[in-house]
Design a binder for these strands. Structure first.
Length: 765
DNA sequence: AGCACGCCGACT
DNA sequence: GTCGGCGTGCTC
């Protein structure tokens, strides 16, 4: 295709004919198209696929940023705009990462520019991590006889005795202006005066904003693997030696030593001269986990949301230069520009936080598999409770190879897990008790033995159900319509969806009612209060996003907990994951039903995972631990299977139900949510969109079921009404074919404030 | 995403 | 009679 024409361009004889290298540019904006630009001769070398460029765009031809995704040669029968500028000295993205971004854009139905921004995060923060440093160096210093002041003499002495620049020892010594002012005790005015005399001069240099010297962390030694671990590591190493794509699932009960297997596999990758990426879920304790793991390796980069822009930029450069062997991090670390990638590990692959919550709404595990495919390397997924999608892929004859670690490493006993049926507890005991007798005795026991406890409730605040005693009208958020939660810390009612805060009325706001307000339901604040009353001698701390404003707060609290300064730690989900303290011997779940409360087809799976995870937290010591789980639904099979710590039994039963209901992993879903402040607009938009999509699929003979639009699980959010439609496909191929078509026909848009397209949704909220 | 063009309500 | 609202469409 060397000759193309613009449909609407007038084909006049005088139309200038452009010829030469042409760049296909994806704008770094939510525009679902690519645009062609002429590459000027001066930029020909620099304008390679993967670099950012500035191009004239839009009506006024104003400069916009984009990424070159392809290059070609050709003639154009219309005047073609030239690239204005190439912004990167070297491509930000390798051809393989460009291919990965293309796949993300296609599979997750988002504009290429949006996918590119996710894969090359630096694209949106240009030049971050660098600053201009002003240096002073000797120019034509005055001869001995020339008069100078004492201050000027100090400046000259400093510059003469300055050490040579590390990057260019032959150059005249230089000192940055700020340090010189300090050392020579002079002012900017002095330096300016000396420049005017021509004695010294300034040079400006672009430098990394902090010296890239990472503090060397103390190394931790490797452990010897047991037979199971050795067998698993052996399979992974064999897969690496086969030099091709391969997906493996490491299914190991908590405490079976999965991490040690990762470490050995990563060492093997490094020994082969390759790089490895280890992904961990985005949870509050990520930093801790990462720090500990990173101590096992030398040339390691840690990437997570807490790492500053400057550090991230330097890490990125070091990775691209091949100076890093292992990249550990959350979601975005998957896109580390490793030139010789040899292994990707996805730890706790079932974690929901692997799903990106904004466009592109990719699932890190699935993109990791795709990247491994593109790079031709193995990918290792690890979990004690694999996502059912993963588990069914690891069935005999499936796409993944299954590696088992069925036993806990020697010395670790299986924790005792018991379930308290809150219905029964309430029958047998008068009054309202948040903490059952079994829970209380577990806490008291641990306290008496000088051991630690974790108490989990996945709900912040004090009381989460506030209503009028007379007319039963609940207090809801004026923007979202959801129940607000009373927080003791602020004395206000908080909306947990839009972060609005209301002053709580003392009386019912309903006209002519004026009943008194009743506070019902519990959150972590309430549990903390109850606990302090129950165990006045215990040192109790609470950990949830209300208390933990900054990353440093986590470190502080965890530090105190680690040295035994806290007996009981109360918190939300964030304490259920990743915490690994050997002195914790008791773990309680105040209400396991919070995972059930979100009513979607994964609620049983989430409840099972939560329960088992919590039990695992109690078993990190040789003393053996105990876990108590309170629930109003003790009979449901998710709880029963968790009680027996039987993942495979649960998976078999749940998969049967999923197959019967035609749900993932036996179907692929796309969730489309339309939001608009006007209810009719959101509803009509959703109706119209569903109708148009159905018609288009039918006409094109494509398979797929478009569900009827209905109010979303959260029908109103931030003053916008929300409607959703669920699309069901039998296979990934059907999904791709249908979504390609719908996107090409521009049917994934509607005239309302926002349209969210969520492929493979993790939560139907 | 921006930005221009275009068609219907409250003002001098 | 105009100013300006946002709804719609386009950007090599």
């Amino acid at each position: 295709m060397s000759r193309r024409s613009l449909q609407d361009a007038p084909l006049l004889d005088s139309a200038p004919l452009a010829h030469g290298p042409i760049a296909d540019v994806a704008p770094l904006a939510p525009i679902d198209r690519r645009y062609a630009y002429l590459i000027p001769a001066a930029l020909s070398d620099a304008a390679q696929p993967g670099v950012r460029v500035r191009v004239p765009f839009g009506r006024g031809g104003r400069p916009a940023e984009g990424i070159i995704v392809a290059r070609s040669d050709g003639d154009w029968t219309a005047s073609l705009q030239p690239l204005l500028e190439v912004l990167d000295p070297a491509p930000l993205l390798s051809p393989r990462l460009l291919e990965l971004a293309g796949w993300i854009a296609r599979y997750y139905a988002c504009p290429l520019g949006v996918a590119l921004s996710a894969v090359a995060p630096r694209a949106s923060h240009r030049e971050a991590g660098y600053r201009m440093v002003r240096y002073v160096l000797l120019d034509r210093p005055p001869a001995d006889g020339i008069r100078r002041t004492a201050i000027q003499q100090r400046v000259l002495d400093c510059l003469r005795s300055a050490p040579p620049a590390p990057d260019d020892p032959a150059a005249p010594p230089r000192i940055d202006a700020a340090s010189l002012r300090g050392v020579a005790d002079c002012s900017t005015a002095t330096l300016r005066a000396m420049t005017a005399k021509g004695w010294i001069r300034f040079v400006e240099r672009r430098e990394p904003s902090r010296p890239p010297t990472a503090a060397p962390l103390p190394r931790e030694a490797d452990w010897t693997l047991n037979a199971d671990q050795q067998a698993a590591a052996g399979r992974i190493i064999a897969a690496m030696q086969a030099d091709g794509f391969r997906a493996l699932l490491l299914f190991g009960v908590t405490g079976s030593g999965k991490t040690e297997v990762y470490v050995h596999a990563i060492r093997a990758a490094i020994a082969r001269g390759r790089q490895a990426i280890l992904l961990v879920p985005e949870i509050a304790l990520t930093t801790q986990t990462l720090d500990r793991l990173s101590r096992r390796f030398d040339r390691v980069a840690v990437l997570h949301s807490g790492v500053g822009e400057a550090q991230r930029t330097r890490d990125w450069a070091a990775i691209a230069a091949g100076r890093i062997d292992l990249v550990i991090g959350t979601r975005s670390a998957l896109f580390a520009p490793c030139p010789r990638l040899g292994l990707i590990v996805v730890d706790e692959e079932q974690e929901g936080s692997y799903k990106n919550i904004a466009a592109p709404r990719y699932h890190t595990r699935d993109v990791a598999i795709k990247r491994a495919q593109i790079e031709g390397t193995p990918v290792l997924l690890g979990s004690a409770t694999p996502a059912l999608e993963t588990w069914s892929n690891a069935a005999p004859g499936g796409r993944f190879e299954l590696l088992r670690l069925p036993n806990r490493v020697s010395g670790l006993r299986t924790p005792r897990l018991s379930v308290v049926d809150l219905r029964e507890e309430h029958r047998e005991r008068r009054g309202v008790h948040l903490l059952s007798r079994a829970m209380e005795s577990g806490l008291r026991g641990a306290l008496a033995r000088g051991e630690q406890s974790l108490l989990l409730l996945n709900r912040r605040g004090y009381a989460n159900y506030l209503f009028c005693a007379r007319c039963r009208t609940p207090v809801v958020c004026p923007h979202c319509g959801v129940y607000v939660v009373l927080h003791r810390s602020t004395g206000l009612a908080h909306c947990h969806y839009c972060r609005a805060r209301l002053i709580l009325p003392t009386r019912c706001a309903m006209a002519e009612c004026g009943g008194t307000l009743v506070k019902f339901g519990m959150g972590t604040e309430r549990v903390e209060e109850e606990l302090k009353a129950m165990l006045p001698q215990a040192r109790i701390a609470r950990m949830d996003s209300d208390v933990m404003a900054r990353a440093a707060d986590y470190a502080d609290l965890l530090g105190r907990f680690a040295v035994g300064g806290i007996d009981v730690l109360v918190g939300t989900q964030m304490i259920a994951k990743g915490l690994d303290f050997p002195r914790v011997t008791f773990v309680g779940v105040v209400n396991a039903d919070t995972a059930l409360a979100i009513d979607d087809f994964r609620s049983a799976e989430r409840t099972f995972q939560l329960t088992l995870q919590v039990a695992g937290r109690a078993g990190r010591s040789e003393a053996g631990g105990e876990a108590v789980v309170q629930t109003f639904h003790a009979g449901i099979s998710a709880i029963q299977f968790a009680l027996r710590q039987d993942y495979e039994g649960f998976a078999a039963e749940e998969l049967t139900a999923r197959r019967r209901a035609d749900l993932p992993p036996f179907a692929r879903l796309v969730r489309i949510v339309l939001a608009d402040p006007r209810l009719t607009r959101a509803r009509d938009g959703a109706d119209g969109m569903a109708r148009a999509m159905r018609e288009a699929l039918f006409k094109a003979g494509l398979r797929g079921l478009i569900g009827d639009p209905r109010p979303a699980a959260l029908p109103r959010l931030r003053d916008a009404y929300r409607f959703e439609a669920l699309l069901t496909f039998a296979t990934a191929a059907d999904l791709l074919a249908a979504m390609d078509h719908l996107r090409a026909e521009n049917l994934l848009r509607a005239r309302c404030r926002s349209v969210i397209v969520d492929v493979d949704p993790v939560a139907l909220q």
